[in-house]
Design a protein around this nucleic acid. Structure first.
Lengths: 213, 213
DNA sequence: TGCGGTTTTTTTGTATGCAATATAAAAAAG
DNA sequence: CTTTTTTATATTGCATACAAAAAAACCGCA
């Protein structure tokens, strides 16, 4: 019942995304249709579909030469990407603070305690997942799936760069602690407070990401 | 020099997008690969590519039945989509006001005078184009292509619903006049003023779209 | 060696055919 | 007459083949 039939195209898409996020496929790498097809044991058709989808997500880009390449970002582009994420997250925080439901509140709190647990046990990859869920909970709290979608998309795209900043257990604890203030600001249900809270959080987060890249 | 070699897949994509925006393809319509292929005189392969790309843009969605369908929005979803666009445009206006370059200023002014011309001559489709350019100029003025991209994307998605509000020449003139205030607010180079200006503009725009849908 | 033009190779874009499967239609059971 | 089961049809997903275009390799010549 749980082995959902998944198309080859999707499988390839997921696998490539994973490879890119893990750094196996370096930025600027050329995505050759035939070699990918051979590697995953499928024909070029589903590979092309996967590549197109990844291109639409901005994970792949078309450079000067023909074909698609793993997107690579200059320091400036990275800054712009973070700025955009910044703006959207701030808007999400503000909207969420105005519409907070019991469900949303509970989800955010649950996600935060998962973060704390992961941080205290020093489980880096678990913390990354929990932190993701924490932010997703805030996005959902806006009650606006469109806002949530673009916020998630930027989070995915900046993921590889943000991940680098969590080096040891202390970083995790510090990050988790940081959430507390943000939660308080959003739960205050005051627009300005929520906005400032998220602005703080994101600026801090960006600063650390900058150091690591 | 202007007849850029364009792939069949892109041609089909553009054509379909146009058809949807023009309302020829109604929301909820099933996109049949073979009939589309026949209509445009190509094989199914480029059609599939076009459909995938449109699906990635949110123009097409996959419902319960198999295949892709023209996205249809409930009143609530429409509101959420406009809210998201609203937030992003406001952020763009604020950033633009802080970073205004001579080039950006000039582009915005040029776009606006094109709007006025189209409005005065009562050319509806030309006004739609010019208005598009006006907003794109503001997006570009942020200096942040990522912000500009998501703003453009929402503008595309809401396009069909906004277009309905321009019924006669008076609507065009009113809309164009409205730009003037917005421009002044952005050119003030004051964040709060620019934010409020865009908020006003978007709220008004949404109100009229609501009436027309 | 460096350069312009030509040829070869590689890679992408498109067409087509086949197999799998969801949906619709028809037939059988209740 | 309704519901279930079976059959048929339509449509998608994938593989393969071919055509076209671009990039790379090649070659003569200065």
């Amino acid at each position: 019942m749980l082995d959902v039939k998944i198309s080859a195209a999707r499988r390839v898409e997921e696998a490539l995304l994973e490879s890119i996020a893990a750094g196996e496929l370096e930025p600027g790498a050329h995505m050759d249709e035939v070699s990918i097809a051979e590697r995953y044991g499928v024909s070029r058709t589903p590979v092309r579909e996967a590549l197109n989808r990844l291109a639409a997500q901005g994970v792949l880009v078309s450079g000067k030469k023909r074909g698609l390449f793993v997107a690579e970002y200059s320091r400036e582009e990275l800054g712009q990407m973070f700025e955009a994420m910044h703006e959207i997250e701030i808007a999400c925080a503000r909207i969420a603070s105005q519409r907070l439901t019991f469900l949303a509140r509970t989800e955010i709190e649950a996600a935060q305690s998962a973060c704390m647990n992961a941080a205290e046990s020093g489980d880096r990859s678990e913390y990354l997942r929990a932190n993701e869920q924490f932010h997703l909970a805030i996005y959902r709290a806006t009650g606006n799936p469109y806002m949530a979608d673009i916020a998630s998309e930027f989070r995915r795209r900046t993921g590889p760069f943000r991940a680098k900043k969590f080096l040891d257990a202390d970083d995790l604890i510090k990050s988790a602690k940081n959430h507390e203030g943000l939660i308080a600001d959003i739960f205050s249900e005051d627009s300005a407070t929520a906005t400032d809270g998220m602005r703080n959080h994101m600026t801090l987060s960006f600063l650390e990401a900058l150091k690591a890249n």
